[in-house]
Design a protein around this nucleic acid. Structure first.
Lengths: 149, 149
DNA sequence: ACAAATAATGCAACTGAGTTGCAATTAGGA
DNA sequence: TCCTAATTGCAACTCAGTTGCATTATTTGT
């Protein structure tokens, strides 16, 4: 285990898991604990190397991450080079859906961060085009993150 | 060849290719001709099956599509399930860059269409977040296309 | 605290998109 | 027409992610 596992966080993680009908297991405590520590979205490879390849099977990690996504604990974003990155929803994730947030991609370090989006200004983003019925929007921002800026 | 190759279009395609310093070849005429006929972006698999697997090697098709993207004839969009779709820029592609268009994803047929975006309203899409420097934006719209609507 | 039922895990083998290296072929200018 | 560089086609490969299945761990009811 090459990351600081914060014991004090464990209760919160246990609560989040059982709240979503997910059994509390060693793997899930590790992965969700790690995701909660990270502001940026993380890839399977990144998580795997931080936690240690010997500590989690790759298939189990994929299934764990997908379970988090299915239960609404986390969401996934595709990178430019077609890998998945996973991020937990922020504190107030009850009101925080995929519909009202944007993804920020740092052009330098290529990390992806989640951003809140103002709904009202979101509405007028595009000109209407006949025949197309728009149901939801997703914004992707490119630039420099605070570390690389 | 399972698509209607429009002979009248050939001159236009030839012109587009040589304009971008791409040699006019059988494969390129077929692929660019097909892309120009389609309003929706197309996948490698889709193009391959329409033109016929026996008519183009898969590697050649990948290289052809990438050449179009590199030369600015087309651009690629990732689908939800992380495949690439390719679309030629519209008629006025001189002023049509990746910065000022959105992608519309039909929830029904999953086709992807390109949309123009109004720059001024684009600006106010997100609340500013400290430390992050936004350079460009990309909007993805979900809904129903004219055929499925 | 224990056993049974159910869910999660780990492993091996697989899939499928996309890439690389290289030899054969073709386009287009001299 | 000929020459050179670009393009093509093939085989073999990479790498993310998946599937099937036997093993193990968690939870619930007693």
């Amino acid at each position: 285990m090459h990351y600081l596992y914060i014991k004090a966080m464990e209760e919160k993680v246990r609560h989040l898991l059982s709240q979503k009908d997910l059994k509390v297991t060693r793997v899930r405590l590790l992965v969700l604990g790690l995701l909660l520590q990270n502001r940026a979205a993380m890839s399977h490879a990144e998580i795997s190397s931080i936690i240690g390849e010997d500590n989690i099977d790759k298939v189990t990690l994929y299934r764990t991450l997908n379970a988090f996504v299915e239960k609404g604990l986390a969401h996934k974003v595709a990178t430019e080079d077609r890998n998945w990155l996973y991020a937990v929803y922020e504190e107030n994730h009850e009101t925080h859906t995929s519909e009202d947030h944007a993804h920020f991609v740092c052009d330098e370090c290529e990390k992806i961060y989640c951003f809140p989006v103002d709904q009202t200004s979101f509405e007028i983003t595009t000109q209407k085009k006949q025949g197309f019925k728009i149901r939801s929007r997703e914004v992707r921002l490119h630039g420099l993150c605070p570390i690389c800026n």
